[in-house]
Every structure is written in C-alpha cells, then in structure tokens.
C-alpha cells in the first residue's frame, strides 16, 4: 500500500480497521496450531507486529486475509522449527498414530468404513479431537484448506512447500482423520468391533 505522505497515525488506523477483523480467526487458528493459549497469543501478536511493519508493502485491493495468514503460517513454522531443534521437543514428523489392535467388522446395519453416514453421526468434539491429534504438518494444511478454504497454491505459498506436498499432506491428513473418526464411531457403538 503506497502511503505517500500520509502520517503514521492514519496508517495505524487503517491497519487496525483491516487487520483487527481477523483477530478471532487468527487466534483460533493459532490455538489449533500451537495447542497452547499463551503461545497462540504470542503467535498472533508477532503476526500483527510483522504485518504492521510491512503494511506499506501490502498492495491495496489484494487479499488481506491471505496476506496475514501467510505471515501467521510463516511465523508459526519458524517458531516451530526452532522448537523442534531443541532437545526434549517432540518431532511431530516422526509421530505415528497409534491405532487400536482391534478389527472392525460390518455391523448388522451394514455400516462400513466407507459409509459417509457413519461420520455424520459423530459429535463435534470428536471431530475437534481428531484434528488436534493430527501431526502439526497435517493439521496445518487441513486447517488452511478445509476450515479456511484456501487454495492449494495459497497454502503452498504460506508454508513455503511445493503444491505436491500440500496435496500429499492433505490427503494423508484426511486419511488419518478418517481412521480416527472410525475409531470414535466404534467407541460410540455405531459399529460392532471384535478383538483380533
């Protein structure tokens, strides 16, 4: 945005008008990413300070939401990379999901893993729990694509990864979600299960 001789006060007012309307959605996403309210607040604050510092680079008329999400994602990834280099931190890439040793067989109602109705019966909290259990990389792309509706190209830019990686992470993320939701459905008694 070319501010020319507009004073700082005007720029700050303009920034707050545009940027603060995304506060809730940024915080909610940051909380999903970090799973820690304090870290989420810090992440949002850092995002806003960076955005304000570079607000003069923002081109008026372009997508502000995508721009500020890119800053949020970048900031998160940089912080997360630093953390993952520290000892005693979990390397999320290596975390594998622990599935039950039980097998699921078709119930009398013919409920199968590929039955879309099965997933519609689950409560919201199960969906949220499953998403929270996804590893950071998968959770990030699922959030950006399915919750916020960003295109693959945008997500690739935000996370600085190739589009193929976005596709792969999204596909694997949804696959993990499906497995977890299927387990929840079994726990809820929507399907009959049997020990191996």
């Amino acid at each position: 945005m070319n501010w020319g001789k507009k004073n700082q006060l005007e720029m700050k007012r303009q920034f707050e008008n545009i940027a603060f309307q995304y506060m809730d959605v940024l915080y909610g996403t940051a909380l999903k990413m970090t799973k820690d309210p304090i870290e989420a607040e810090d992440l949002v604050q850092d995002t806003y300070l960076k955005a304000y510092r570079f607000f003069d680079k923002f081109e008026e008329g372009t997508n502000f939401k995508a721009w500020i999400f890119k800053i949020l994602t970048n900031t998160f990834i940089n912080k997360y990379r630093k953390k993952s280099k520290q000892p005693n931190q979990v390397d999320f890439e290596k975390v594998e999901f622990q599935y039950s040793e039980e097998t699921v067989e078709k119930s009398p109602d013919n409920i199968r893993k590929t039955d879309k109705n099965l997933y519609e019966k689950l409560f919201d909290d199960k969906i949220n729990n499953a998403l929270d259990r996804l590893s950071t990389e998968f959770r990030l792309v699922v959030l950006l694509c399915d919750v916020h509706g960003f295109a693959y190209k945008e997500i690739a830019e935000f996370a600085d990864i190739p589009i193929g990686t976005v596709m792969s992470r999204l596909s694997r993320g949804r696959k993990h979600l499906q497995e977890m939701l299927f387990e929840y459905a079994a726990e809820e008694g929507y399907i009959k299960r049997q020990k191996k």
Binding site: T29, K113, L177, Q178
Partner: peptide, 30 residues
Amino acid sequence: VQQSIKVRVKDNVQLEKAPVHLRARIRRKL
C-alpha cells in the same frame, strides 16, 4: 467419505475467539 470428512471439518471445527485482552495488548504493542 472424503467429502463428508471435509464438510464435517469445515462445519464443526470450532475456532476459539481471541481473549478480550489480546486486542488491547496488540494495540499497546503497536
């Protein structure tokens, strides 16, 4: 199933609202 999961995630993932003090905190930092 893929479509169903996508829709459920879109409709049911709850994003928490920012705490009231965060807006003031960021404004102060600015």
